[in-house]
């Protein structure tokens, strides 16, 4: 089960990945966009992390978001207000709608998150008037959401493959669509950043799994030597 701390951790990992990959995202945005995707998303995710951290430090002024839904909604709101480009309302809507779909549950299962992200992806599609195949973030998002019920790793892989599969597509939405056939041969920057989101989701889940396993081992180790034999049982 995934709690609010897991989602904070995911968003921090996503922010770090966006920061690391900002130049690549902007490079992808140069031939078919206005060369600001990396810097815009970096500004947005930096603000998301700062806001989430400030809610932890500043508990007297406002309650820190203590459910997955509240964490995602706050992050989405922050993206809408700080990104300054089209990716702000698009990613902001994705996170807010996903957060809203998760409701007030203090902990959610991977399947709940898949359902909620589908609602978020539907809202993105509606907002932009786009569908899979239009060479947008949906080309990474939708396959990832489809694969998420299987595993986090499958979702990350589907997102990466979906982003790569935008290369031969002709853009039908956004600024790139003005280029017509000249948009063919370039990876969509929004699909590339969506893949980062799912890669960091899988990394966060793997980190938590490893930590849990370590804690279990430590607890078993404290109980005696029986735990040592049990270690081989972990996949």
């Amino acid at each position: 089960m995934l709690d609010a701390a897991f989602f904070r951790r995911w968003l921090a990992a996503a922010a770090a990945a966006v920061d690391r990959e900002a130049d690549r995202l902007t490079e992808l945005d140069s031939p078919i966009g206005d060369a600001d995707h990396g810097s815009n998303l970096r500004r947005g995710f930096t603000a998301v992390v700062a806001t989430l951290e400030s809610t932890l430090e500043n508990t007297l002024e406002k309650e820190p978001p203590d459910t997955p839904g509240a964490v995602l909604s706050l992050a989405g709101r922050q993206l809408i207000s700080t990104v300054g480009g089209a990716s702000g309302p698009l990613y902001g809507t994705l996170l807010r709608r996903t957060g809203r779909a998760l409701g007030d549950a203090p902990r959610v299962a991977r399947g709940d998150l898949a359902d909620a992200l589908r609602a978020g992806a539907d809202a993105v599609a509606q907002l932009g008037g786009a569908a899979p195949g239009d060479k947008t973030m949906l080309d990474a998002l939708v396959p990832a959401v489809d694969a998420l019920p299987s595993s986090f790793a499958a979702a990350a892989e589907a997102a990466v493959q979906g982003a790569l599969a935008t290369v031969p597509l002709q853009a039908r939405k956004g600024r790139a669509s003005y280029l017509g056939e000249r948009s063919i041969g370039h990876q969509d920057p929004g699909a590339a950043s969506s893949a980062l989101l799912f890669e960091t989701l899988a990394e966060t889940a793997e980190t938590e799994r490893a930590e849990r396993a370590e804690r279990t081992e430590a607890a078993e180790g404290a109980e005696g030597t029986e735990g040592v034999a049990g270690r081989g049982g972990h996949e």
Binding site: I80, A86, G88, P89, L90, G92, T93, A123
Partner: peptide, 14 residues
């Protein structure tokens, strides 16, 4: 155009 449209739509939708 672009983000101007999407930002207002997102603000109204939410």
């Amino acid at each position: 155009l672009g983000s101007a449209v999407l930002t207002v739509k997102a603000l109204i939708a939410d």
